[in-house]
Every structure is written in structure tokens, then in C-alpha cells.
């Protein structure tokens, strides 16, 4: 038996929440079909959201889900250019062989599956030239920001390896956010469907907090206090470093895990800093937004 879920026309963070709610009741033997034919706009977060929802459906039902690609030529071309299909082929049962990725795309970072430290090296070492073009040349960041961005990318991808016990995906794209910000932004999305923050930190921290232990408490412990599941005092720096860098660049970072989301909220954004009671979903889903520098901002890195 198949369960057909319509993918919202605008495939972004909100659409991801809709998809999660839709696939919640999936159980053994029912196969998911994600119908993305009506999609008219896709963000990096939305694109990875399809993979995350598909992977979760696969794990839960034991059946590879199906996906109908977008009808719109422009969206289809964008999805191809983002190298979505090679990653999708590992999650979905595809009717046709995935199209060969186009050569050079305009994406800062195409969809990349992270399953080992070699993948993290490949991502970090490969992003430099495009990061230079986009962050420095287009968004006005000083040159050293390219290195800081690479470090941030490394840490956020390693989060998958160190804490998720599962595969994950990363991608990044530049946009013009006319309505919300009136500026160009770089949007970086990283997702996995692993154990999540609550599960990862449970052994070390749940005993201390007892019944108040929750996904929201785990996110606070990791994101605000740099706590980790390891007793090693050197652990837990990665997220702290990401947060500090994003704050320095007046950016936004949001991490969804389990049924909660935590965020660093800059003045230009209006999401809650901590939100619980969301539809539960495994793993961690990270969104980072880095806005173009403005003329009155100095060369600080």
C-alpha cells in the first residue's frame, strides 16, 4: 500500500514541518510516495528535507520510498544542478537513472552525502574557490572569512559523524532575500536522521536532569553550554564555535532535533529562540543563514 504525500509548492523550512506531520503515521509495509510535481521553489533546507523524510520513511517501513520530480523546468534544472539525484538514489527508488550532474553549478555547495571523515575533507577542501567567489566577491566578506566558513562547515558536518551515528547531507546556496532582508544571503543546510541531541546526550546528562530531560534541554545543553556526550573536556567545542562565528557575522542559526528547535536570532529575524512541541523527527536539522555585509560593517572576520 502506498501513501502519497504532496510536497508543498514552496519547499522550505515550513514545508519540511508539513512533510514531517504527513509521514508521522507511516508504518511497516506502507510505501511513501513524495509527490513533488507541484514544487515551484526550493531552498537547500527543503531539498535536504526530502532526503531526510525519505530516509526516515525507508527506515520505518523497510521500503525504499518513491519520489515524483518537480514538473517546473526551472525547478527541475535547479534540482539537477544541485546534484540532488545521486544522493536521492541512495534513499528513494527512482524510476529512471539519476541524471548526470551538470558540470560546474552556481551553488556554493551541491548536495553531498556525509558518511565518513573523508567526505568532510572532500567538502571542506572543495569549497574554497566557490566560497571565495561568493562570500568575498559577492557578499563582501573579508578574505579570511573563507577560512572561517570552511571551519564552520567542517564542524557542522562532523556533528553528523560524531553524534548522529547515521549518514547525513549538506548543501549551500546563495540567494537574494528581497523581502526579509533586502540583501544576498548564503544559506547552509545540514541534516541527518540519526539519534538526535536528546539521544546523543542522554547517557551523560539525563540522569542529572531527570524527568525534565527533553530534546529542548539537550539542545540548550549543547548549543548554549557546549556540553557533549563525551567526558573528554575537549569535546563540545564545534557547536560553540559555529554559534560564535554566526553571531560575529550577524547571521542566524537554527537547529531542530526531536520535537524542539533552538536558534540564535539576529535582530533581522523573528523566530523563537527555543521552541518545543514540534512534530517529533529523528536526528538534527541545521540551518545557517549568513547575510551580505553592509557598507557600515567593518572588515572584522
Amino acid at each position: 500500500m502506498s501513501r502519497v504525500v504532496q510536497v508543498p509548492g514552496t519547499l522550505d523550512e515550513t514545508a519540511f514541518e508539513t512533510l514531517i506531520a504527513e509521514v508521522r503515521g507511516l508504518d511497516d509495509g506502507s510505501r511513501l510516495l513524495l509527490d513533488a510535481r507541484g514544487v515551484s521553489w526550493v531552498s537547500p533546507y527543503g531539498l535536504l528535507g526530502l532526503l531526510a523524510v525519505g530516509q526516515e520513511a525507508r527506515v520505518r517501513t523497510g521500503l525504499a520510498p518513491l519520489i515524483e520530480p518537480p514538473d517546473d523546468d526551472e525547478v527541475r534544472s535547479y534540482v539537477d544542478r544541485m546534484h540532488f539525484w545521486p544522493a536521492a538514489a541512495e534513499v528513494f527508488e527512482l524510476d529512471a537513472r539519476p541524471p548526470k550532474p551538470h558540470g560546474e553549478s552556481d551553488a556554493l555547495l551541491e548536495v553531498t552525502t556525509i558518511r565518513s571523515h573523508e567526505d568532510v575533507h572532500r567538502v571542506v577542501e572543495g569549497v574554497r574557490e566557490k566560497a571565495q567567489k561568493i562570500l568575498h566577491n559577492r557578499l563582501g566578506y573579508p578574505k579570511p572569512a573563507v577560512i572561517h566558513f570552511s571551519v564552520m562547515l567542517s564542524e557542522v558536518c562532523q556533528n553528523i559523524l560524531e553524534h548522529a551515528d547515521s549518514i547525513g547531507w549538506v548543501c549551500a546556496q546563495r540567494y537574494h532575500w528581497r523581502r526579509r532582508l533586502g540583501r544576498d544571503v548564503v544559506v547552509l543546510a545540514v541534516m541527518d536522521v540519526g539519534v538526535g541531541f536528546e539521544g546523543s546526550l542522554a547517557t551523560e546528562h539525563a540522569r542529572r536532569t531527570g524527568e525534565s530531560w527533553s530534546a529542548a534541554a539537550a539542545l540548550e545543553a549543547a548549543f548554549l553550554h557546549g556540553e557533549s556526550r563525551f567526558r573528554d573536556p575537549g569535546r563540545g567545542q564545534g557547536l560553540q564555535a559555529i554559534r560564535s562565528q554566526v553571531v560575529r557575522w550577524d547571521g542566524a542559526v537554527r537547529i531542530r532535533s526531536g520535537d524542539a528547535r533552538i536558534a540564535h536570532v539576529p535582530a533581522w529575524d523573528d523566530v523563537p529562540a527555543l521552541q518545543g512541541g514540534l512534530a517529533p523527527f529523528p536526528g538534527a536539522q541545521v540551518l545557517i543563514v549568513l547575510p551580505a555585509r553592509q557598507n557600515d560593517e567593518d572588515g572584522e572576520t
Binding site: V124, R128, I147, S150, V151, S154, E155, Q158, E162, G234, R235, Q237, G238, A241
Partner: peptide, 13 residues
């Protein structure tokens, strides 16, 4: 060319 926080902990610290 670059060192990240995790690697700095493993090597330097």
C-alpha cells in the same frame, strides 16, 4: 591551509 576546532583539540590540546 586550515585547522578546525576538533582537530586543534586532538592535535594541540
Amino acid at each position: 591551509p586550515l585547522i578546525d576546532f576538533s582537530c586543534a583539540d586532538e592535535v594541540v590540546a
